[in-house]
Amino acid sequence: MSAPDNNQADNIIEARGLTKRFHGFAAVSEVDLDVRRHAIHALIGPNGAGKTTFFNLITKVLQPTEGTIRFNGRDITAESPAAVARRGIVRSFQISAIFPRMTVAENVRIALQRPVGTSFHFWRPESSLDTLNGRVDELLDAVGLLSLRDQTAAGLPYGRKRALELATTLALEPELLLLDEPTSGLGGEDVDRIADLIRKVSANRTILMVEHNLSVVSKLANTITVLARGKVLAEGTYAQISTDQRVIEAYIGGEE
């Protein structure tokens, strides 16, 4: 697909033996996972499989009980969530994460503002951020929100909120984009729009996404990892995965 084929394995993320226990219960258990640069890599699995927890480990929201995470070959296991984000790993959340009482434009601007380097400047007027407006509008245009730029984000319909979240995430030009169920809770038309958007932004970056909608996964992903009960069950292309007996069992057993 969009990824230029690279012969030597060029991994942006290498997780080794990654484990997270909550009071003894292993939500993620000894997971080894490589994400190839410029891939769209999907993480699927039944509810409670540990997908969100895995995201939380990669983005350092949770500290792993065991294991290491490498990003571009560098060990980031001990870094803070904000530092990891500054390295270029930016995520979206399973339940839409916006700044509800800020306007649509401000939601995107807050992301653009950080690289400017004036975020601690409490003596500057807000208008010093006006130079970012052009870029804000470009991003909003890309997700179809330009006409709503001065609305308060809280008032947007759910699908628009997800689009806004994506625009905010993209504003940081992340090298690795982690999307946690970007189409969940969306109607058919919105699903297609978000899927198109993901494909569009996948050029020159890597995407790791959790997704329950298998038709979206089949359309977008070039590699799929199946997680069940915290462990990697299978990995491969959509064709390989969809015929894997263990995967079918895990889904049937897991969904009840």
Binding site: V61, V90, F93, I98, Q113, S119, P125
Partner: peptide, 19 residues
């Protein structure tokens, strides 16, 4: 200020601001 904007984002959704 730019700083105040960040404060606002922290108040509204701190995990997102961190991310």
């Amino acid at each position: 200020s730019p700083f105040g904007q960040v404060l606002k984002s922290i108040r509204e959704n701190e995990p997102r601001a961190i991310s």
